[in-house]
Each structure stands twice: as C-alpha cells, then as structure tokens.
C-alpha cells in the first residue's frame, strides 16, 4: 500500500529536486487510489493544521511548535529549539527532500495525532503550507 507513493516520490526526485507540487501530486495520486476523485485542498489542509487533536499535552496541534502561520519561524514546544518556517515561500528547502518529508510526517503525526497521517492528509497539508489560502 505504501510502495506506489514511494516509487512516485523516488521518480520525482530523480527527474529534478522535488518541488512541493510534485510531492503533493504523489500523495494526491495515492489518495485518489483510495478515494477516487480526490483532489488536494488547501482549505482542508488549513483546518488540519489548526485542529487541536489533543492527543499530546505539550503538542496538541501542529501550531504548538509551528505557530498559527506556517510562514513564521516556530519553536519546539519541549526543547525550545528554533524551528524554521514550514512554508517553502519562507524557507526554500522545505518539502524538497521526499525522505525527510516522510520521516517528519511519520514522527509528528504519531506525536500529534497518535497515528500516521493518510496520503490525503499529507496532500492537503502540503497544498496549504506551500500555496497558502
């Protein structure tokens, strides 16, 4: 189930350094296999970004570390370490390394949602942070 998206991601990096759009497209393609007609939505991504999942005390939502805006620098809620903005328009290297993107979705979704994120959630999330609303 995870293989197709990984293959797409690898294909995306081989052609050129993956842009956020290619990554979002790979996740959207995976999502549309599960739900035909899926289309990434920055609006849903924004709601997801702001949602309080409240699984973790110190990290109840994405905003706990990344602030209310993905274009602003954040701060790790536990260690206090500075975090660069998530939005590629503010920090060009964001969402350009598929392995890194997968790693942080896995870690942060597990922490904040208590489970891994779906391909649809990832596609929406990237659509929001890279395009804004």
């Amino acid at each position: 189930m995870k293989k197709p998206v990984l293959l797409l991601l690898i294909a995306a990096t081989q052609a050129f350094a993956a842009a956020p759009r290619e990554l979002a497209q790979a996740y959207a393609a995976e999502a549309s296999r599960q739900a035909p007609g899926f289309k990434a939505s920055p609006q849903r991504g924004a709601e997801f970004y702001a949602k309080r999942f409240a699984v973790s005390d110190k990290m109840p939502a994405c905003t706990a570390c990344h602030t209310d805006s993905p274009a602003r620098p954040g701060q790790h809620a536990v260690t206090g370490k500075a975090i660069k903005p998530l939005a590629p328009r503010a920090e060009a290297a964001r969402f350009s390394d598929p392995a890194k993107v997968e790693k942080w979705f896995r870690r942060n979704c597990t922490e904040v949602l208590g489970r891994e994120c779906s391909a649809a959630e990832k596609a929406d999330f990237i659509a929001f942070v890279s395009e804004g609303l």
Partner: peptide, 11 residues
C-alpha cells in the same frame, strides 16, 4: 518562555 528548559543551551 525564551528558555523552556535546561536542555535549550542556545537560549
């Protein structure tokens, strides 16, 4: 708030 804990050396 600028420090948050002893592990944040750089604060």
């Amino acid at each position: 708030a600028r420090v948050k804990g002893a592990a944040n050396c750089a604060a």
